[in-house]
């Protein structure tokens, strides 16, 4: 079992997905890196404002969102594994599971946004919230795009559009979701936790 599982996965020295997707992710990660650095540097300049404003965010909501994203990542990775073993129907079901987990994040994030707006903590409230909205908003848009991709992959998977030999598109789409996760795990402590 173990050896067959290994052989069905990506061969050693092989880059999963499309090379173009990797370059695209590199570009995305650079943009996010700049945003994150801008946030950190501004925090260093205005530490008091940042720690005061951070108290207005709910860390446990942040944690729940993290778990939603990571679980979606797990399901997406498991789906890919099922397709590699030529079980596309199970793969499709898992992709739908990923979509469901991701929507947990979306619901939580939207309620957080609504709560903040209702308290008058919008884009123009202070520099912390300006950067909070730019950074998390940009990430939120990526989550939405990632969900569109996951949904499209699930549909194509259900119709048998992917199999063990033809799966580069699936790999690329799943990779994109992992990148969204990757950004979040750095973004979450910086925005919600670090003082």
């Amino acid at each position: 079992m173990s050896t067959s599982a290994e052989s069905a996965a990506a061969a050693p020295g092989h880059l999963p997905g499309d090379l173009a997707m990797w370059f695209f992710m590199l570009a995305e990660l650079s943009v996010f890196a700049l945003l994150i650095l801008a946030f950190a540097v501004t925090q260093a300049i205005k530490p008091q404002m940042f720690s005061d404003s951070r108290l207005l965010l709910d860390t446990s909501t942040g944690l729940a969102m993290t778990l939603g994203l990571l679980t979606a990542g797990l399901f997406a990775a498991l789906a890919l594994e099922q397709v590699r073993h030529s079980r596309p129907r199970r793969g499709a079901a898992l992709l739908l599971g990923a979509l469901l987990a991701a929507s947990v994040y979306v619901v939580l994030k939207l309620s957080e946004y609504r709560h903040l707006l209702a308290s008058g903590l919008g884009l123009e409230h202070n520099t912390f919230f300006t950067l909070y909205w730019i950074l998390t908003g940009f990430h939120f848009l990526h989550v939405l795009l990632g969900m569109v991709i996951l949904g499209w992959l699930a549909e194509r998977c259900r119709r048998g559009g992917f199999d063990a030999d033809k799966r580069s598109g699936l790999e690329s789409g799943v990779l994109y979701w992992h990148m969204v996760d990757l950004v979040w795990v750095v973004l979450f402590p910086l925005v919600y936790v670090l003082d």
Binding site: A9, A10, A11, P12, G13, H14, L15, P16, G73, L74, A76, A77, L175, H178, M179, D181, L182
Partner: peptide, 9 residues
């Protein structure tokens, strides 16, 4: 883990 980079170039 998820992105399978342990085996990648």
């Amino acid at each position: 883990g998820f992105m399978e980079l342990r085996r990648a170039p």
